[in-house]
Nucleic acid binder design. Sequence first.
DNA 1: CGGGATCCGTTACGATACTG
DNA 2: CAGTATCGTAACGGATCCCG
Lengths: 220, 220
Amino acid sequence: MAGPRRYKLLCPIARALDRIGDRWTLLILRDLHAGPARFSELQSGLTGIAPNLLTERLGQLTADGIIQKRDGQHGVVLYELTDLGRSTRDVLFELALFGGRFAPDADPKRPGNLRTIAVTLSAACQRVVTADADFEAELNVDGELFTLTARAGEVAMAYTPARSPDVVMTASYEAMLAASEGEMPLETFVADHVTLDVQTPGKDMELMTLLGGAMEVFAK
Amino acid sequence: MAGPRRYKLLCPIARALDRIGDRWTLLILRDLHAGPARFSELQSGLTGIAPNLLTERLGQLTADGIIQKRDGQHGVVLYELTDLGRSTRDVLFELALFGGRFAPDADPKRPGNLRTIAVTLSAACQRVVTADADFEAELNVDGELFTLTARAGEVAMAYTPARSPDVVMTASYEAMLAASEGEMPLETFVADHVTLDVQTPGKDMELMTLLGGAMEVFAK
DNA sequence: CGGGATCCGTTACGATACTG
DNA sequence: CAGTATCGTAACGGATCCCG
């Protein structure tokens, strides 16, 4: 560990890269921003990272205090971000903004799960949320369920079904991404690619306003 | 190239990493944010990256439209950021903020030149600059000269001597970094580690206000 | 069955030497 | 000065196996 392939420079950018610059590491953090995850969830989400590499990365991240192990129910082991790890959100979001400027690969691989969208979406929402936004939404993206909450100017997104959603939105991963990157007009997305199930009247508008704003942040 | 070790995912974070996630690539961009550079300047700044790797990285970055070649004076070849490349500034700055949270390595390597500080410093200044700031400063850091200009709310920093500086500031790399990361109080830094040569009265205060603000951004 | 550890072929990196 | 060529070493990728 702490291998020979480290920069070991004073520069804070290099210091960051010595912690999170290895292959897979930033994608592991990306998926952990959706909430605590088990080894196998991470492995499947990362389109089949080799298990030895995942083990190695998790160990290094733990040693650096960026993630930690936790015992979940039924004796399962969970990995989760520490406060320090949560502070990678802005790095990941800026990477997403930059990456969005490049055309997707010709035949992209599908992730094993959709945890991948949580950081990007919640960080974008955080940038446009207003203090009066107040709702709990369930996002059903290709059958995978997320909870998106906005309360007192704070946005959170987790890879769990919602407890008591004000609104349930259903959409596909591809449509959401296309809308985010300006390939699909927001109106088309809302009209043709989204289903809304409203529990609390008016909260559907709050959700769509927030998501619309988030997608605009991303598009420019 | 475009090797087999790419993620090829739809996720914009992965798309970014497929362009700028390789070893050395982000550090090359970091140094280019200080202005156009020659091959050998980059090589020395990066503490002796292997020349074949530098060639390979420059080629990939050029192919992706992130940098471009330009012919300078006396037939020298220069590499410089494109508009797309300049948009990596926020990624680099967020990395610097994250990296600043880790203690420096026990015996860190010294970079061959100090281009490395330009992005971090200018991005931090950009975050705190006010619209009325208006000056041109020369920064002499361990004998290497930078121009820092603030005009109409825009900050720029380049690795060149200033043409007609309002103020010349002299300091050391280590002291500036220590002050940035809160290890040295700002007052100590200003009082004991900085020399100011004022050409235009009052501009020294403008400069120190800006730098002080930048360091506070970085410290928290 | 989930959570890893072990092994091995392949690829990328690092150092040095060399050339236009 | 600006790269190219070569080669040993370290990291990665994939498969298989092990253990609770």
